[in-house]
Computed example of a mutant assay.
Amino acid sequence: MINRSHHGSEIPDFVLKDAAGREVSLAGLKGKPLLINLWATWCAPCVEELPALNRLAAKRAGTLKVLTVSQDMGQADKVAAFLKDRAPLLEPWLDPENALTDHYDTTILPTTIYYDAQGREVWRYVGPRKWDNDLAAQMLAEAK
């Protein structure tokens, strides 16, 4: 179900890291729509939707940034290997302190948050979904 109650909220200024120590600033990703997916290796519905997210990332590479953020705590290397096998286009970003989970008040994984190119929230979606079908395309068309 789509939640639009935070529509227009500014993207948080969090910095994420991967197992290699690379960093990405969420606020620095403005410029094209951003789909942030909070997931975990132990979450069966999360794992099930990874291939569709990977296909979406491939199909919309120039017009949409798909950012998967693992909620696995203390298992950075495991997350990287897990994604490499299942969704090689998705980068293994980590949220080891669950700061994003707290910020978004997330209680269910997967949770996906969609931002427009200006870094304003469009909607949130709780639960798994097929991110590479026509309905998802209609949802993603809401961002300018």
Rank of each mutant, 00 (worst) to 15 (best):
T63C: 05
D77L: 05
L64S: 13
R60K: 14
P88S: 03
M73P: 00
T41C: 02
E48H: 11
A58G: 14
P45R: 14
Q75Y: 13
L56W: 01
Q71G: 15
A76Q: 04
A57N: 04
Q75D: 10
E48L: 10
E91C: 02
K65V: 10
K84I: 00
E48T: 12
P45S: 15
A58S: 11
P88I: 03
C43I: 10
T63V: 10
V69P: 09
R60A: 15
M73K: 15
A44I: 15
A57S: 13
F82Q: 01
K59M: 06
A76C: 01
E91R: 12
D77H: 10
F82I: 04
T41D: 01
L53K: 06
A87H: 01
V69Y: 06
P88G: 03
A81T: 08
Q75M: 15
C43T: 08
D77E: 15
P88N: 03
A61L: 05
W42R: 04
T68Q: 00
A57D: 03
V69D: 09
M73Y: 06
L64P: 14
E48W: 10
R86A: 10
R60W: 02
L83E: 06
C43A: 09
K84G: 00
N54I: 04
K84E: 10
K78D: 02
V79E: 11
P45N: 15
D85H: 10
P92R: 02
C43P: 03
V47T: 11
D85L: 13
E48Q: 12
A52R: 11
D72F: 06
D72I: 05
E48G: 00
T63H: 07
D85W: 02
K84W: 02
L50E: 06
K59W: 03
L56K: 04
E91W: 15
A52M: 08
A80T: 13
D77R: 12
A44F: 12
M73A: 15
A61K: 14
A44W: 12
P51L: 12
A81G: 01
L67T: 09
N54W: 02
K84R: 12
Q75T: 12
V69M: 07
L50Y: 03
A44M: 13
Q75L: 13
E49Y: 14
E48D: 08
A58C: 04
P51Y: 13
P88M: 03
M73E: 15
L64M: 12
V69Q: 07
D72A: 03
L50C: 08
G74Y: 07
L56Q: 07
A58F: 08
L67Y: 11
A81H: 04
A81E: 12
L50I: 06
K59D: 14
L64Q: 13
L90P: 02
G62V: 15
K84D: 02
Q75F: 13
L90D: 04
V69H: 07
E48P: 00
Q75E: 14
P51T: 12
V79L: 13
E91I: 05
C43M: 07
A76L: 00
P88A: 02
A80D: 10
V69I: 14
R55W: 01
D72C: 03
L50A: 09
P92C: 08
V69F: 08
W42C: 00
V69T: 11
S70I: 01
A52G: 12
V66P: 13
C43S: 14
L50R: 03
V47E: 05
P51W: 13
T41M: 11
P88Y: 02
A81P: 00
P88C: 03
K78T: 08
A61N: 02
A76Y: 00
L83D: 05
M73I: 13
